[in-house]
């Protein structure tokens, strides 16, 4: 199989399989999680200002007092790489084209130089976060295979995409194919790892905020 046919495979059959597994996994887990249910809380609700599901969804995105100082890399690095990922994934013209092709929605993109810069910043932030995880004994102790693995499958699409655009290491055709393949691996892995937080983040925060809000505790 030559480069062009490999690219055609990842754009065709490969994407087909990856999106299939992705949707299967996402729907499976969402159904499973939201069907678990909880017993109704029969106690009388206590009201406190700032104690609700919606409040918690937003409050959890801000560092609690003092935490920013204790763990600046986690917060700042985490913010930078999440925002950077969003820019690279959703504002690069060829990516928008893919989304338009899949679901019909479309919006204007950013100039490719800006996206290029965002990709570099994202990768730098991810490397810093990884180094921090390796250097801090507690973080290292708490890390399992899944943590290293999900970091890698998130990092690779950014790296390969950037290398494809910059024409590094491999011919563009091959690099583009490797990039798309890495995204497909991410799609397959996402529903079954902690990366599923992309889907459960808002729901679980809301749930926690709601439960605690009922008890009158703003968390």
């Amino acid at each position: 199989m030559n480069e062009l046919l490999f690219l055609t495979w990842v754009r065709g059959t490969g994407l087909n399989i990856a999106v299939g597994i992705f949707l299967l996994g996402v729907l499976w887990r969402l159904f499973e999680i939201y069907s678990l249910g909880r017993k109704p809380d029969l106690s009388a609700p206590r009201h406190a200002s700032g104690a609700s599901g919606l409040h918690t969804v937003f409050r959890r995105s801000l560092p609690p007092p003092g935490m920013l100082k204790r763990s600046p890399v986690s917060y700042i690095g985490g913010y930078i790489f999440h925002v950077g990922l969003a820019i690279v994934v959703f504002l690069f013209a060829p990516h928008i084209l893919l989304i338009t092709n899949l679901i019909g929605l479309s919006w204007p993109g950013l100039p490719s130089q800006v996206v290029d810069l965002a990709a570099v910043v994202t990768m730098a932030a991810m490397v810093v976060v990884l180094v921090d995880r390796i250097n801090k004994p507690v973080k290292r102790f708490l890390s399992t295979f899944e943590d290293w693995f999900t970091w890698a499958v998130t990092f690779l699409p950014v790296l390969t995409g950037w290398m494809a655009v910059q024409h590094l290491l491999l011919p563009y055709t091959m690099m583009l194919a490797v990039h798309i393949l890495s995204v497909e691996i991410l799609l397959v892995v996402l529903p079954f790892t902690k990366l599923f937080h992309a889907f459960t983040l808002v729901g679980s925060r809301w749930y926690n905020g709601r439960v605690n809000g009922h008890k009158g505790v703003p968390v």
Partner: peptide, 22 residues
């Protein structure tokens, strides 16, 4: 080049299987 080479055939089936499994 950045869009699927073929229509995604498994989408409907995969969604149904995923929902049923869930």
């Amino acid at each position: 080049l950045s869009t699927p080479a073929d229509p995604l055939k498994f989408v409907a089936a995969a969604s149904v299987v995923g929902a049923v499994a869930g």
